[in-house]
Structure formats: structure tokens, C-alpha cells
């Protein structure tokens, strides 16, 4: 790098013409330090911002139901509903077009109740209530280090209001069935097929935090 390098800056100018933007190399130690300081300061501020953002986006609230003996942590500012025919439903109010949700339910179980019985019962109930309900797969798997039976399903979510022109949404779902002595805990995750994979970690976090 030469301090006398001449650069062309404007069309029609030659190296002999008055220089445009000729680089002057000398800077003081303070200039260099300031230059590095700017980078450090900006990186510092941005890091703080990103850390705060990460903390904010991973914040959770505790759901506790003493009657059902169930606790779980779910993403902050999700809506909780306990009025349906389930123990609780956590729903992301901002998700579009289908509100990503996790349902927790308990079903009484007898000694001879099998996981398959529970899944069949769910299938019968849902096929009467949901459009185009289909079971995609039933399998044993390990989720968050726990061996569970899971059922993948899909259905078409439609708006009950006939006057609104909401396009039906294909929803993908997953049931996890856990037998707990005289009851069965069913954890259901449902999301629009487009976002199912993206939000799956959120479901795993809820599942991992579930205590009963």
C-alpha cells in the first residue's frame, strides 16, 4: 500500500488530473483506537439488544391445574382456555392463518385400557367434528428423551361463520399419549402445515416442561 497511490475518481480524469478521493494513509493512534471502539461499541449495543430479544422471545409462563395435577410452561402471551372439553388449551393468538395450539387433556383409564383404545376414541370423536380428518401415522417414538406413543393427523379447519370467506386451512397435528396410572394424559399439538415444523420446538419445550 503506497501513500502516493492515485485513483481515478471521475470519468474523463486521468492520473495527472487533480486527484479525487486520493487515500491519505496516515491516521493517529487515537483514530485507530476510535475506529475499533466504534465497532466494539456497536457490537456491544447490538449484543445486548439481541440478548434481550432472545430472553424476551423465550420467556414462558407457568400453567398449573391442581385439580388435574398438571403443570407445564408455555410461551408467554399465549391464550389459555380451560372452558372446552379439555384440561387446557394454549393458543398463539398471533399465528396465521391457523392459531398454533397445544391441548392438554386427561382421559380415565382402566387396567386394560391400551394406548390404541385412547387413540381410536380420539379418532372417532374428531372424525365427527373435524372436516377431512385423517390419521397419518401412529408410532412409538422418543420425544425429549421420553418414550411415547404419538399419532400424526391432519384435518381441514374451516370457519363456522358462513359469511366470512376464510379459506380452509390444512392443519397438521400430533397427539402424544402418556398412561399415568388410572388416567391417560393426551398432549396435542396442532399447527398450520406451513408452520408445523417451525413451531415444533415450542411444543417440545411444553412437553419437556410437563409435570403430572
Amino acid at each position: 500500500m503506497s501513500s502516493t497511490t492515485r485513483l481515478q475518481g471521475q470519468q474523463g480524469l486521468t492520473s495527472e488530473a487533480p486527484a479525487v478521493g486520493r487515500l491519505i494513509s496516515h491516521v493517529t493512534k487515537s483514530d485507530r483506537f476510535a475506529s475499533i471502539s466504534v465497532i466494539v461499541v456497536v457490537i456491544g449495543f447490538m449484543s445486548v439488544g439481541l440478548l434481550l430479544r432472545a430472553r424476551d422471545s423465550s420467556s414462558t409462563w407457568l400453567y398449573s391445574n391442581r385439580q388435574a395435577g398438571i403443570e407445564a410452561r408455555y410461551p408467554a402471551e399465549w391464550l389459555v382456555d380451560e372452558q372446552g372439553d379439555y384440561v387446557a388449551r394454549m393458543r398463539d393468538p398471533v399465528a396465521r392463518p391457523f392459531k398454533t395450539q397445544v391441548l392438554i387433556d386427561t382421559v380415565p383409564a382402566a387396567d386394560n385400557t391400551s394406548v390404541r383404545n385412547i387413540l381410536d376414541s380420539l379418532t372417532l370423536q374428531r372424525s365427527a367434528e373435524l372436516s377431512a380428518y385423517r390419521v397419518l401415522a401412529v408410532r412409538d417414538s422418543t420425544l425429549a428423551g421420553v418414550l411415547v406413543t404419538e399419532m400424526d393427523f391432519a384435518f381441514v379447519d374451516t370457519d363456522p361463520d358462513p359469511f366470512v370467506q376464510r379459506v380452509p386451512v390444512v392443519v397438521e397435528g400430533l397427539d402424544i399419549v402418556i398412561i399415568d396410572n388410572t388416567r391417560v394424559i393426551v398432549l396435542t399439538y396442532m399447527a398450520d402445515t406451513e408452520t408445523f415444523e417451525d413451531e415444533f420446538d415450542t411444543f417440545l419445550d411444553i412437553f419437556a416442561s410437563l409435570s403430572y
Binding site: W61, E77, W78, L79, V80, D81, E82, Q83, K99, D159, D161, V164, Q165, R166, V167
Partner: peptide, 14 residues
């Protein structure tokens, strides 16, 4: 953030 607190709600169409 419990839906018990909600009087009514709706989702918009296309």
C-alpha cells in the same frame, strides 16, 4: 390471558 376473560372473539377471513 385466560380465555375466561374474553367476551367474544373472531378470526378474519381472506
Amino acid at each position: 390471558w385466560n380465555e375466561e376473560d374474553i367476551l367474544t372473539q373472531a378470526i378474519t377471513d381472506r
